[in-house]
Amino acid sequence: MWLFNSSVGKKVVMSVTGLALILFLTFHMTMNCVALFSAEGYEWICNFLGANWYAMVATIGLAILMVIHIVYAFWLTWTNRKARGAERYAVTARPKGVEFASRNMLVLGIIVFVGLFVHLFHFWSKMQLVELQGGEPAAGVELIRYTFSKWYNVLLYLIWFLALWFHLTHGFWSALQTIGFNNKKWYVRLKWISYIFVTLIMGGFATVLILFFCAEGLNWAIFPGLFQGLVG
């Protein structure tokens, strides 16, 4: 089967799972933004994605995507290191045009993965997991307000977002290249699309985070009329 035994096949698996995860992030970011504008709206979404069968299927699907993405990442890294040979260069230089992210995807990925566990502990374990165990899930907006009133959480999340940003700016473009969607004309366009799109997603996440910190941690009132979700 070519998805297992060819280098391009393996990369296609990475790409497709990666793109699906980006799609999930896009949705997640949109959902977070709702929390800014309306606490009720956010609660509704949280309820909608509770311990229902469709939410469970999606969660398990996500987990599987994640696992495949990670397993393939390690597999590819291992074979690639082997291909590099035992001897290393004494002097290495980064050629022009080669981005930092592209050479450090595994490391960035590991940071993202560790961050994910923190995130699951903060939110998922108190919401969907509790509900699955038959308990009453915590209210979404309250949890956000609580978590992001702490400066260290904010800092942690921002570092996590930055790693994700790097991971995704390369990942998004790279995924399209791997599935063959690129040529000389589209190269620059795709790079731009990738930067803009990923910055929008990560910017969305970061904005929600910072605004909640300002409102809860610093007690600033920011456009209370507009951001009703921030008003406790």
């Binding site: 391009v8 990369k11 050629p95 045009g97 592209s102 290249q177 791997t178 063959g180 190269y187």
Partner: peptide
């Protein structure tokens, strides 16, 4: 190994062969 799209090859290619070929 497999291509991870770092573009180092393209940058160092003495004949400037483009990675659009890899796509």
């Amino acid at each position: 190994g497999a291509c991870t799209n770092t573009r180092a090859c393209e940058a160092e290619c003495p004949k400037c062969v483009s990675i659009s070929n890899i796509a």
